[in-house]
Amino acid sequence: MTAPLPLPRVRVIRPATVEAAIAARAECPQHEVLAGGTDLLVNLRRGLLAPTVLIDITGIAELEEIRTTGDRTRIGALVRLARLAEDPAIASRHAALHAAAASVAAPGHRRLGTVGGNLCLQTRCIYFNQSAWWRAANGACLKSGGEVCHVAPEGERCHAAFSGDLAPALIALDAEIEIAGPGGRRRVACADLYHEEGRAHLRLAADELVTAIEVPASAARSGYLKERIRRSFDFPLAGVAIACRTEGGRLNALRISVTGTNSRPLLIDGTAALLGRRVDESVLTAAEKLVAKQVRPMRTTLFPANHRRSIAAALTRRLLGALAAPAAAEVGAPPTEAP
């Protein structure tokens, strides 16, 4: 083994059931959960985490299912993103989720990467996602065990940005997350899975596991738009998911969620005020303003924070305009691979 940046020495265990995985989580003090590994293995090689055990959950068959019961689609935590991106039923029922899945990373990552891994993705920061040499030379920050945040030195918190693509779509679609723990399973609204704190953005106990998402069927139209510098291989500068419904040309439901700008995927407040109105220029401007006001991008990327805000706002206007237009097709889906 001569190649640089090897994985640290770890032991891998591969439970076959959710219960066994939960038990293993409770037993092993220094462990990480391994799903697709497209985020975790890279982070391990950079020394961002130092587990001695990896709990590989990909042996749990139960978590691979997609099931449609009545008005809900239940998607197991281990469902691969490529499968979501290629599934015509997902495309027609939950367009935002479909578009979001198709926009993640590059094709190979989508074949390995899972829904659960995408939701539980580590937050990102230019001072954090670096090699061990880099972080040591630069001085550790709050997230890597140091005393100060290099992005906002006067503050007390970490602003590392949540940059997953699925979460905003699920939040806009009002999906629920199923979580298993030693005491059984519970459900939370997707937005409630997250905190606004880059060091600990997940509201998940150390012995819990995300097991599934449940997306309600709805008459709302939905879409996801993501801006990035490249068309592939790139996290969102900002990503906006919207689900909305119009009746007689007037808005009667509207949910907007944004990723890439905060330490959590943000559910935009105040959209209720726009209900009952026609989606005209003033509504688009109002929606754009709501987003611009609420997102808090910080200097966690080399790309200037103020423009991440303006891009989030511009995407909101564009997406809402397209969804409210009479013949809205699926919006924002990049060319997806054929099945």
């Binding site: 630069n138 290099h150 490249r230 291989f233």
Partner: peptide, 19 residues
């Protein structure tokens, strides 16, 4: 960033993809 190479990966040093 203060002399630290902030671009030293293919994720931060973006070259165009096939798309």
């Amino acid at each position: 960033l203060d002399g630290m190479p902030a671009h030293a990966s293919f994720l931060e040093y973006r070259m165009p993809t096939s798309l």
